[in-house]
């Protein structure tokens, strides 16, 4: 069993109904019929994952570049945790296990 940091995740855009109020988001996930309340980082991450697959590393890279936040271990760890949380909620699926990086 892996910790998931080397896995790629993806979400299906057509499964989501989004509503945005300022920097907060309400998401209705059609397959589970559940409503989720997301902060801006989670929402942007999920929107990225609905466009193409990301690993924790590539997603952290992308979010760092988009937000201008420095990419460090703290951010990478947070993104890995976020992906696991989104997977637990059923909002993303793991599509493959990749070789662990160096």
């Amino acid at each position: 069993m892996t910790d998931g940091t080397a896995s790629a995740y993806i979400a299906r855009r057509s499964d989501f109904c989004w509503e945005e109020w300022d920097d907060r988001y309400v998401l209705f996930y059609v397959p589970s019929q559940k409503t989720h309340y997301l902060n801006q980082t989670s929402a942007i991450a999920l929107q990225r994952l609905a466009e193409s697959p990301y690993t924790a590393k590539t997603l952290a890279d992308a979010l760092s570049e988009e937000s201008g936040e420095p990419l460090d271990e703290g951010l990478r760890g947070s993104i890995a945790q976020l992906l696991q949380h989104l997977e637990t909620q059923g909002l993303v699926v793991r599509i493959t296990d990749l070789e662990p990086g160096p």
Partner: peptide
Amino acid sequence: MPGPEAFFMVATNAFNYEVRGEAGFR
């Protein structure tokens, strides 16, 4: 009250929000 909080309060005070599914969300 901000919109997301109002949304949460309305949805949790609805007897049939989940029964109505996406239509309820809309």
